[in-house]
Every structure is written in C-alpha cells, then in structure tokens.
Design a protein around this nucleic acid. Structure first.
Lengths: 197, 197
DNA sequence: CAGATAACCGGAGGCGCCTCCGTTTAAACT
DNA sequence: AGTTTAAACGGAGGCGCCTCCGGTTATCTG
C-alpha cells in the first residue's frame, strides 16, 4: 500500500477507537477547566476522576503532564485564532477587533501564574512557540486588514506593532486591577487606531 | 542600596544546637554527593536515609528542594573559590592557574544536566547568581594577577576575557569527549597566556 | 547533680505520581 | 449474529513528597 493515508493535518484524529476518542476529548476538556482554575499543578488524578476515567487512561493518552498542558494550550490558542474569523462575520470590523483583543486578554489572564511551566515547555519545544505566535499573528493580521481596508481604522499600523503593544499586557504586574489596566490599555490602542489621520 | 543585613549568609552558624548542626552538615554533604551522581531529582528520602536522619529533619532544615540545592551549590562554589588560594600557595603561579581552571571544568561538569533547575533557581533568586559569579571572578582575578606580576604569564589579558572564554565551556555540546574538548580549550588558553609577548 | 524547658528529632500518614497488567470492549471478519 | 483480536480501560501498588506532632535531648538554672 502506498501510504495514501487520508491524514487530516492539524486536527488529525489518528484512527482512534470510538471510546478512546471520547475519553481523550473529555480529558482535554476537564483539564482545560482545571488548569484555568487551579494552575498546572492540579492533581492529574483529580482530572481523571472528573473526566470519569481511570488514571491509567489519562497517562496512556498523555504520557507526561507537559503533554497534556501542551494539548490544552494549543487547543485554546486555536480557538482564539478561530474567534477572529467568527467575530469578523458578526460585528463591524473595528468592534470585531476590539472584542478580539479583549478575548486575547482573557487568554493571557488564564496563563498568568503558570508562566514558569509554560516557559519550560516553550524552551524544550520551541516549535510550539513559533506555531502559537504564528496563529495569533495571523488572526490579528486578518482583523487589522479588513478594518483598514473598509476604512474603520488607519492603515499605517503594522501587525507587529499592535502585537507588540498587546503583549506588553503580559508584563502588567499582578494586582486586583490587573484586568482594568489591560482594558484601559486596549481602549487607548483602539482609539488610537480609529483616529484615521 | 541599604543591604546592610548583619547576618553573614556564608557560614553563619546561627546558634544551632550541637546535634542540629551535625545533622545539617551531614545532610549537605550527602546531598552534594547525591546531586552530583544522580542530578537534582534524587529522592530526598534517600538523602535523609543516607545521612542517617529522618525525613522530617531534612525538611526542617531545608523547607524545599530548592533550598537544599542552593546551599549545596553555594558551598561548592565557595570551595572552588577557596581552592584558588590554596593552589596559589602550592604551585608556581601558572600551574596554579591551570589546575584551578581544571577544577572549574569539574565543577561545570557536575552542573550539566541540572541546567534547567539551576536556571529556575537563578531567576527566582538572582542575588545568588550575582554572588556566585563574584566569587569566581575574584578567585580567577587573584590567580591571574599573581601569575602576571611574577612574570609567568602576559599581563594584557583581563579577568573578564578569560572568564568569558572559560564560560564558553558550558556550551560545549554533550558527548563522550566533552571533557577532552574542555581540557584542550584550557590548554590552548594557557599556552596563549604564557606566550608573553 | 537534678529538674525544667525549649529546641530538635523522626516517622507515620495522607496525598499525588506513574507503571504494570489482568479485564473489558470496539470493530473487523466469517 | 457469533467469533476473534487487538486496542483500550482502570485501579492496585510501589514510591516519593511533605506535614504534623508525640517523644527525645542539649542546654540552662538552681
């Protein structure tokens, strides 16, 4: 057989038995919630329990904690990127852009506190980082382009510039008003963008 | 900065009861050997067992694994610095310098593999790093100065230069000949130093 | 030297990690 | 439908982490 496998690239459902696939999906879903709530240090046995499977099943699907973290991280990143298209079809371009950046903040918020774990993950698997930022950049670029072409915002701002500004959110120090600050920053940026000169 | 803490961090025997002090010292000694042999992931219970104390005692002295690692690391660094003085009084200056750099290599060799742990430690406690490199720099500087003044080596090389060259050893890729390569590099540097122009 | 006391010791216990393997079951075959 | 079989399940078990606290002991005081 010439290996003409109908492999679907990214979301490859690599021929998993039905039950296996169900369990795997459920595990990812539960893990995502658990990580968001308690950080990456959450007990894996808890996750397995909540997903209604044995600990053995969890470990078969995700040999190490890092594997699980990576999958969850990737999935969220993808859904964030996908949201760009969705929002673009639902709101005027400038509002779509603004709403998307808000979601971006939400995503970052969830990742604070597990910064260290993520950093380790990134350095031991740098392609993950490259892929991730590529996805986000692409999403942002699409939104910017549309909004610019349709005259909602100025056109002399590069994706890189905005991304740079957004990523500065990451370094806002932790505090009760963290989110407020982030939103203020976004508001500022958006107003700046709308000020077509 | 007003870092005028009166506590001498180094060998501060902060009024420890005799037995406590004994146990603490023994723990450090055993831990140093264990880390060198099996990396920082060694079982702490094993260390306690080998030191002939209960696990509770270990945890009282070193609340976290990182505490223990840090103390061991610091101690080795200090003994490396002390070796400089010792060697200086025992060999001609240029040989003392050469032998010291060899020990430096040994030290680095022991630290490979635990690079990640050390990096975490360093970023969460940057003063540790500053202190450490200060010590080493001082030791090297002393050796260089003596050897230079007594005419054994050239005098137009700064401590920083040599330290830079030495630290490049750290990035020699892992392989069976790792040590050979390191020693070759040292030989090269030493010959260069002795070539008084 | 005896008694008091504060510091120290150590291991049991509860929890999570991860592996291993006997049992169950989806899916391919007849 | 019945049989087969390889994939998937799941939990027991061994190990290490870390905490907690009743027992031990160095040191101080009379």
């Amino acid at each position: 057989m010439a290996s003409a496998e109908p492999k679907t690239a990214s979301t490859a459902s690599t021929k998993l038995r039905a039950d296996a696939r169900r369990n795997r999906d459920k595990l990812i879903e539960v893990a995502a919630a658990a990580f968001a709530e308690n950080g990456v240090e959450t007990s894996l046995e808890d996750i397995a329990r909540q997903a209604g499977v044995g600990i053995g099943t969890l470990y078969r699907h995700f040999p190490t904690r890092e594997h699980l973290v990576e999958v969850v991280y990737r999935r969220e990143l993808e859904s964030l990127a996908a949201a760009a298209t969705e929002l673009a079809g639902k709101y005027p371009p400038d509002l779509a852009l603004e709403e998307w950046t808000r979601r971006f903040v939400g995503y970052i918020a969830a990742k604070r506190g597990m910064a260290n774990s993520l950093r380790i993950l990134m350095t031991s698997n740098s392609s993950l980082f490259a892929e991730g930022s590529g996805l986000i950049r692409g999403a942002l670029e699409g939104l910017l382009k549309t909004a610019g072409e349709e005259g909602y915002i100025r056109t002399d701002i590069e994706t890189t510039d905005l991304l740079q500004a957004l990523s500065s959110i990451y370094s806002i120090p932790d505090s009760p008003e963290w989110r407020e600050r982030a939103y203020r920053l976004i508001g500022l940026l958006m107003d700046g963008l709308r000020a077509k000169k």
